[in-house]
Computed example of a mutant assay.
Amino acid sequence: MSRHRIAAFLLTLALAIGLGVTFQPTASAAPACAAAWSSGTVYVGGNTASYNGDNWQAKWWTQGDTPGGSVGVWTDQGACGGGGGGTTPPAGSCNYPAWVAGTNYSAGAIVQYSNGLYYQATHDNPGYDPTISTWYWSPYTCTGGGGGTTPPSSGGFPVSEAQFNQMFPSRNSFYTYSGLIAALSAYPQFATTGSSTVQAQEAAAFLANVSHETGGLVYITEIDQSGNYCASESYGCPAGTYAYYGRGPMQLSWNFNYKAAGDALGVDLLDNPSLVQTDAAISWKTALWYWDTQTGPGTMTAHNAMVNGAGFGETIRSINGSVECNGANTAEMQDRVNKYESYAAILGVSPGGNLTC
């Protein structure tokens, strides 16, 4: 460097010091944010998601476990910028009530925690800590408004709350509409596959069958609980020999169904079968688990029966075909059909063909 350039540099440096300018090394740009973490999304080891301005990487399979939470399934990858974005709500844009320990919250309630962030109850709970009980709470992106008891949006679910109440005028208060909506994330293909007519038909078919199983969503548990629903599986019946009687909208029965449903939903139902009769969202999820994944005595799942055109009759076969189909009990079968036709009419769609089995 020439003497003239050195002199110019020193003069510039002196002026900068005199003006209070601080020289900082150029910071490298933060990596782009991955897609924002969602409580309803299933992540496997190696998947990344952004949350609160950081990218996080899953260590193993997870659903509903908040990054940075007590479960320890997520590794913090550091700050990110742009891209998918985190879930930190804009400050001051909402006025939801502060969370209070020990207060009973229904699914859908929105609260502000002491960390300044907002959380929405995904399951009814007696005031569990939103940052610890990630099964009961999910982060909520605040976009304005107020009030803390707005139910979760039904999204594209074909049945409105008013129609749900019309279908079940005498239902037990346990079977909440918000509990059903909260459960939909477990099986996103339910009532979202095919045309809008097919989606409404599937919703009506599902609700008609659970109505039959529960006397119009009146019964949470089986009336006769003396039956032995304990099959000789390797894991046995840790909750008790007679603990696996029918519960919930689909009257989930038998130890192997509680084990399989619990494994699929990430909940230990084998040891805690009573959750199906005390947690509305879990209860609805077990019904959706059977509907979407089990063929029962039939040859296809009830979901596939409705979306692939096999008809309502095949849903009966998948649920209780060995008892009601092929002329075995036409009165019970017809009761399901009648309910389905009634619910389809409420939703304004044709019930389609192949109604019986």
Rank of each mutant, 00 (worst) to 15 (best):
Y187F: 15
G144F: 14
G156M: 12
F157Y: 15
T149A: 14
S178A: 15
G155L: 12
P188A: 03
G156W: 13
T150M: 04
S154H: 07
P152N: 07
E161M: 14
T150F: 01
Y136Q: 13
G156C: 05
F164M: 11
F164P: 05
P158T: 08
T141C: 11
Q163C: 10
S153E: 13
N165R: 14
T150C: 06
T143Q: 14
F168L: 10
S160A: 13
F168D: 09
S173I: 08
S160V: 01
Y175F: 15
N172M: 06
S173G: 10
S178L: 04
F174E: 11
G148C: 10
A182Q: 02
A183H: 00
S154N: 11
P158W: 07
L180R: 06
S185E: 10
S153I: 09
S170G: 10
Y136V: 03
A162S: 15
S178D: 13
P169L: 12
S170A: 14
A186C: 03
L184M: 00
W135G: 03
P139Q: 13
G179N: 09
G179L: 07
A182W: 00
L180P: 04
F168I: 04
T150L: 04
Q166T: 15
N165K: 14
N172L: 05
Q166W: 04
Q163I: 03
P152A: 06
F157V: 09
S170Y: 15
P188G: 07
A183L: 08
T176P: 03
P188E: 08
L184N: 03
P139F: 05
T141N: 15
G146H: 07
A186N: 06
Q163F: 02
I181V: 15
G146Q: 11
A186R: 00
G145L: 10
F164G: 01
T150R: 01
S185A: 10
Y140C: 09
I181P: 00
S138D: 15
Y177V: 00
S154K: 14
Y136N: 13
T150W: 02
W137F: 11
G144R: 10
V159R: 07
W135H: 04
Y187A: 01
Y187I: 04
P151W: 01
P188K: 02
Y175C: 02
S173P: 07
Y177C: 02
